[in-house]
């Protein structure tokens, strides 16, 4: 199991479009991936789950991956989030 904390810096938070990009990336990896904000953790492969965290710009989230290819999944997701999820 690996995890990393990252700050969301895209323009308008984790709403439909950036959440979709994140979920699609998570879905490419065979391992389980979760996103955590505060004490709430959701499946990173569920759009409704990720949107329900309502992560705003500047907020900190933790990406956690467990299983086959967990390092690659974590790296890809952290890079995607740091890049601004298509709307930096």
């Amino acid at each position: 199991m690996v995890e990393q904390t990252v700050t969301l810096n895209n323009r308008s938070g984790l709403h439909a479009r950036p959440a979709t990009l994140l979920v699609r990336e998570a879905g490419k990896h065979p391992c389980n991936v979760w996103i955590r904000k505060g004490d709430k953790e959701v499946d990173a492969k569920s759009i409704l789950g990720v949107m329900s965290l309502a992560v705003g710009r500047g907020e900190t989230i933790t990406v956690r991956a467990d299983g086959s290819g967990e390092e690659a999944a974590l790296k890809a997701l952290v890079e995607l989030i740091e890049s601004g999820l298509g709307e930096a």
Binding site: H15, A16, I47, L48, G49, M51, S52, A54
Partner: peptide, 12 residues
């Protein structure tokens, strides 16, 4: 209603 975005523009 598993998702009601705080901005009120989306629901799941």
């Amino acid at each position: 209603l598993t998702n009601l975005f705080p901005t009120g523009h989306a629901a799941g």
